[in-house]
Simulated scan of single mutants.
Amino acid sequence: MKLYADRAPTAVRQVVTDVLVVVWVYLWIRVAIWIHDVVEKLAVPGQKLQDAGSGIAGNLADAGGKVGRVPVVGDDLTRPFAGAADAARSLAEAGRQQQELVGKLALILPLIALAAPLALVLFLWLPLRLRWIRRAAVARSVRDLPAGRDLLALRALASRPLGELARMGPDIAQSWRAGDAAAVDALAELELRRLGLRGSRR
């Protein structure tokens, strides 16, 4: 499997593009981590609220227990403490729920931030890169075979701009149809050059 072209301009372009893609992905991963850390900080108030609510509820419950031991009026005195303790537990629960929500956001928001950049890499850059690798492998395997060079010449005739083909001569297609070896070789070299590959070793 050949990852990079033989010819310097194409190979340099491929290497630079690959490096830029790696840097692009790395930067977006860093952005996602930063978003995660920032969102996680939003959980601190919820944690403090939960701790404070739990502490107050515990203290009120203890105080209510002690007041409840007062003879005759103990039960009546306990009710306000029990109600306040329940309210404090509600605050603690609200703090816990806020932390859960922040935890979910800390997972979802970084994934959303990464989705578009990674989609560009997976659905644009990677298919183009794999297609070049596949075409280069086929071209290298057939470039030294007469039939393979004929296929490369046909590919050049079918895909290269008309102006580029016209510069090779007004009857280049006729020469290829006639089996002119020089025309076939010139067209095959044109296709190999487009892929950034060296010519035949013949």
Results as ranks from 00 to 15, higher is better:
2 K>D: 11
162 L>M: 07
34 W>T: 14
22 V>E: 14
98 Q>R: 07
163 G>W: 00
96 R>Q: 15
59 N>D: 11
8 A>M: 06
180 D>K: 07
174 Q>E: 15
47 Q>A: 15
129 R>L: 02
186 A>M: 05
63 A>E: 12
100 E>I: 13
78 T>R: 13
135 R>L: 12
67 V>L: 11
145 L>F: 01
73 V>P: 00
134 R>V: 06
58 G>H: 02
87 A>K: 10
162 L>Q: 14
91 L>I: 11
172 I>R: 03
121 V>A: 07
102 V>N: 05
160 R>N: 09
146 P>Y: 01
34 W>E: 13
201 R>C: 03
102 V>M: 13
71 P>A: 13
97 Q>A: 14
75 D>K: 15
119 A>I: 07
22 V>F: 15
19 V>H: 13
15 V>F: 08
42 L>W: 11
97 Q>C: 01
94 A>M: 07
99 Q>P: 02
166 A>R: 13
174 Q>L: 13
145 L>E: 11
28 W>E: 10
176 W>V: 04
73 V>S: 04
49 L>A: 09
112 I>L: 13
6 D>W: 01
99 Q>W: 07
134 R>W: 04
6 D>G: 07
172 I>P: 03
40 E>H: 08
188 A>Q: 02
146 P>N: 02
155 R>M: 04
25 V>S: 15
12 V>N: 11
147 A>Q: 05
117 P>H: 04
103 G>C: 07
127 P>N: 06
15 V>R: 12
37 D>E: 15
178 A>E: 13
11 A>S: 12
141 S>W: 08
59 N>F: 08
63 A>G: 10
102 V>H: 05
53 G>M: 02
131 R>S: 12
121 V>R: 06
105 L>S: 08
69 R>Q: 15
165 L>V: 03
70 V>W: 11
11 A>D: 12
21 V>C: 02
92 A>H: 03
93 E>I: 04
173 A>Q: 09
173 A>R: 11
82 A>V: 10
168 M>A: 02
90 S>R: 08
95 G>C: 06
50 Q>D: 07
34 W>S: 15
83 G>Q: 14
184 V>W: 05
39 V>Y: 05
71 P>Q: 10
112 I>V: 15
109 L>K: 05
81 F>Y: 09
30 R>N: 07
40 E>P: 00
119 A>E: 05
164 E>P: 00
200 S>L: 11
3 L>F: 00
151 L>E: 04
196 G>D: 05
123 F>T: 11
107 L>T: 12
84 A>V: 02
197 L>F: 10
79 R>A: 10
73 V>I: 14
154 L>Q: 09
181 A>S: 14
191 E>L: 00
190 L>H: 03
106 A>P: 06
178 A>W: 03
59 N>H: 04
86 D>I: 08
68 G>C: 09
140 R>D: 13
184 V>R: 13
25 V>H: 06
151 L>Q: 06
43 A>C: 03
182 A>H: 13
136 A>H: 02
94 A>S: 08
44 V>A: 09
196 G>N: 09
70 V>N: 12
26 Y>T: 14
66 K>Q: 12
195 L>A: 09
195 L>G: 10
176 W>K: 05
185 D>C: 03
74 G>H: 05
76 D>G: 14
142 V>C: 01
116 A>K: 13
